[in-house]
């Protein structure tokens, strides 16, 4: 017999299981961050200690000094920042307009679907496939080892994603608002700028964050396109501390921790938008 008490016990067991699963997930995601953070403050001897030193070590800023004064990590960080911001701005300018056009205009037959699909299909191949052509391309224009090359390459990869996201946001807006604006005397462009864009602001913010994170974290393209200190991004610079004879774990940890910090803070601030950004389209695709 299923008694009330049995129900209550079963519910308690389920809840405990759920918490256990969450605890494991939390551990898997936060442990590397913890390990990165503590290693960056440890002396080399503590980094390699067996068994590992968990908390009791004398903290040092030696690796930070080595990375940001001894090595040009400040320049890498600046490069990363410029590239991520520029990529996001350029992707957003074109992506919002393309997304709006796909959401609003009439296309004969199934062309709306076709064009949208083509745009998305550029994301379907692994980026590594395009690396050699991109290298030759930028070499031809003498753009290797420039931030511009990285921005162009990142924009090409981010644009489909920005376009699709903005298309979904614009499709959620009622078209009557822009129609009202046009009857009120505005052009299509005016209705887009004065009515559609302000209303799509949450979408633009969410899309911008995704784009920033993607550009900030990207490694492969940057590795191939940049080899000089003046153009290298943080992920490439960090990987450069794995040298032929030794791996500078301290410096890698220091730079890696500082590189991930802005993204973590950013994500915490805009959590709400991220959730909306990831779940939109779930109701209406």
């Amino acid at each position: 017999m299923a008694t009330r008490a049995w129900h209550r016990t079963r519910e308690a067991i389920f809840r405990m299981l759920a918490y256990a699963v969450m605890a494991i997930a939390l551990f898997i995601t936060t442990f590397p961050v913890y390990w990165l953070a503590t290693n960056s403050f440890k002396l080399d001897i503590d980094i390699f200690a067996v068994p590992p030193v968990w908390f009791e070590f004398s903290p040092t800023l030696k690796h930070y000094e080595a990375a940001f004064i001894g090595q040009p990590f400040l320049i890498y960080a600046l490069n990363s920042l410029i590239i991520a911001v520029a990529t996001t701005i350029v992707s957003l300018i074109f992506g919002t307009m393309a997304g709006y056009a796909l959401a609003r205009f009439h296309y004969p037959g199934r062309w709306r679907y076709q064009i949208s699909f083509w745009i998305l299909s550029t994301r379907m191949m692994p980026p590594i496939v395009t690396i050699i052509p991109l290298f030759i391309f930028f070499n031809f224009f003498n753009l290797l080892n420039t931030r511009l090359a990285v921005v162009v390459a990142y924009t090409a990869f981010n644009l489909p994603f920005v376009t699709w996201m903005m298309k979904s946001y614009f499709q959620d807006l009622p078209p009557e608002l822009e129609e009202a604006a046009m009857v009120d005397g505005d052009t299509r462009w005016g209705a887009f700028v004065r009515v559609a864009l302000p209303l799509a602001r949450p979408g633009i913010v969410a899309t911008a964050i995704f784009s920033l994170i993607l550009a900030w974290n990207e490694f492969l393209l940057a590795l191939i396109l940049t080899q000089t200190d003046r153009s290298m991004t943080l992920p490439v610079g960090i990987s450069g501390r794995v040298t032929q004879y030794t791996t500078h774990w301290g410096e890698i940890s220091a730079a890696g921790f500082l590189a991930s910090l802005p993204i973590i803070i950013f994500a915490l601030i805009v959590q709400r938008h991220l959730v909306r950004g990831m779940s939109f389209g779930a109701v209406k695709g």
């Binding site: 009622p174 009557e176 604006a181 009857v183 009120d184 505005d186 209303l199």
Partner: peptide, 27 residues
């Protein structure tokens, strides 16, 4: 539409949600 000089009241009203009453009327 902008050169036709007509005014329209929509079934859904189509008020600009991000603008105040004054800015809606003044658009």
């Amino acid at each position: 539409p902008k050169y036709r000089d007509v005014a329209m009241v929509f079934q859904s009203y189509a008020l600009y949600p991000h603008l105040s009453v004054e800015d809606n009327i003044g658009y």
